[in-house]
Amino acid sequence: MHHEREQIEVSRDCPAVSVPYGAPVTIEKGCMAQITQKLGGSYTVYVDGNLYRVEGVDADALGFEPTEAVNTPVMPEGPLSAESVRDMAWSLLATCFDPEIPVDIVNLGLVYRCEVETLGPDDYRIDVDMTLTAPGCGMGTMIADEARVKLLSIHGVSDVNVNLVWDPPWGREMMSELARLEMGMM
């Protein structure tokens, strides 16, 4: 079943990244773009037969209100502890999306480990092991960088390591029930 998606004329040259290869490109002013996904502060657009990811700071080129990159510290609920930082970390990881799939990386089962280490009073490090749906996906470093930037925004977090791992290999059985439902796999 084919959905008619919103066609938008790009109002200015707009930096983007090709999906799934991750190569930086410029979508030229006047191109017609079809919005396929608006999630996690970025947009996935279809232009001339190719998919591209446009960050929220460039949303004005697509006719939307631009969103600033996350740089305001996010405060965990209650007193700062390794546990409250870990809860906040999982919440923020659930705001990272694969540009081709409308499900966040947590529900896709791509995050294997998220551990918080106390470095000192109100000073924490987060270590994340995550994988991708396919080892050749060029978007991996972009998704990992997005996760790292979001996790560094947590108040009290001074260091974040996001490791891309391939063992165990990802499989559809790792997806949450919600993700399988969203993708019509139930």
Results as ranks from 00 to 15, higher is better:
Asp123Trp: 02
Asp60Thr: 01
Thr44Tyr: 12
Leu80Gln: 03
Ser158Cys: 11
Trp90Glu: 02
Ala134Tyr: 14
Val54Phe: 08
Ala94Tyr: 04
Pro99Gly: 06
Val128Thr: 04
Glu146Leu: 03
Gly56Tyr: 08
Lys150Leu: 11
Glu100Val: 07
Val45Tyr: 13
Gly140Met: 00
Val54Gly: 08
Thr67Val: 14
Ser42Thr: 14
Asn163Asp: 13
Leu151Pro: 01
Glu83Leu: 02
Trp170Arg: 07
Glu177Arg: 15
Thr95Val: 03
Leu93Gly: 01
Tyr112Ala: 04
Tyr43Lys: 10
Leu62Thr: 07
Val54Ile: 15
Asp60Pro: 02
Met88Pro: 00
Val128Asn: 02
Arg125Glu: 14
Asp123Val: 03
Phe64Tyr: 15
Gly78Phe: 05
Glu83Gly: 02
Ala59Tyr: 06
Met139Thr: 04
Val157Arg: 07
Met75Glu: 14
Ile143Met: 05
Asp58Arg: 04
Thr131Asn: 07
Asp87Phe: 03
Gly40Ala: 09
Ala179Asp: 11
Gly120Ala: 14
Asn161Pro: 01
Pro135Trp: 13
Phe64Glu: 15
Asp159Val: 02
Glu177Cys: 05
Tyr52Trp: 09
Glu65Lys: 10
Pro135Gln: 14
Cys137Arg: 07
Ile105Lys: 03
Leu181Lys: 15
Met139Ile: 02
Asn107Ala: 04
Gly49Pro: 12
Asp48Gln: 15
Arg86Thr: 02
Val162Gln: 01
Asp98Lys: 06
